[in-house]
Amino acid sequence: MKHDALKATLPGKIFLSTEDERVYAAVRIGLALAALWSLVMLWPLRVTLLAEEGSVPQAAAAEQSEMCTVLLFHFFPSGDGVTLLMLLAGAAMLLLMAGVLPRMAAFFVFLWQLSLMERAPLAAAGWDMVLRSFSFLVLVSPLGKCWSLLAIIGRRSSVPARVARYGLVLMRLQVLVVYWQTVVLKLANPNPYWWNGEFLPYFLLSEYSRWPGAWVAEYADALALGTWAALLAEAVVPVLLLIRRTRFYGMALGMILHGLITLAAPQIGPFMVVMAATYAAFLTGEDVRRIGQCLTALAARFSARR
């Protein structure tokens, strides 16, 4: 098949059409920041959850692992080794954020996320799985040279390239699956918490809640509306995000949803940070051009003050 004919096929139109490479740069920076946030949150628990002298020995984790190995942790089993490994992972995240050796950094970040899930699968939070999936998609996506440290230091005014958008399409699908599968699971759950609206009251009485107390039972009926609204929002957010004209409404609704969850349960705040990073995949070339202009104006104002 000729190249033009390949691009004219339906998969070709979906995956090989081009997009401004700065959208990928926005995702790369967002993912690196979110992964770094998660790493910082994990730091105090690193020995307890990940080291040989912690709660679960490495051999048991490897036995349970789908890959029969704990990957990077195999080479860094001790507490000091885990500390070193986490510092290396943090450095890779900083490099990825700065766009320095981005492919190598993306590979290490992906390997770190994969290793983390294999070493401590029972301690994995929802945002770990999002980071794992997204770090793979960033790894296989065009990374470009825009919005990188070298571009800033060198003050190169390179024209952003237009690159194939398959990575962005897959990232958007991944976000859709995160929301829709959780909706399906909640509705299919044998416990009727979601159907009868009791989930939110129980959530506010749980370990995670900022204000657990008997007051919740008094407002159970009103809180049922909140349960259904959350479910509806999870179903609708991906649709709004996927439609170009409504994507900002989708981002706003998603952030309100995750923001309210974080307000009520600060312990699971990293999920909001990670999901915010994934929303960058729904930006367009025009959006990133405006963001770039804002950042340039801010930088100019900052340097003028100095």
Binding site: L42, P44, L45, T48, L49, A125, E207, Q267, I268
Partner: peptide, 11 residues
């Protein structure tokens, strides 16, 4: 730890 970090709690 109080409050329990999510990862510790779920593990």
């Amino acid at each position: 730890m109080e409050p329990a970090p999510v990862r510790l709690y779920v593990q």
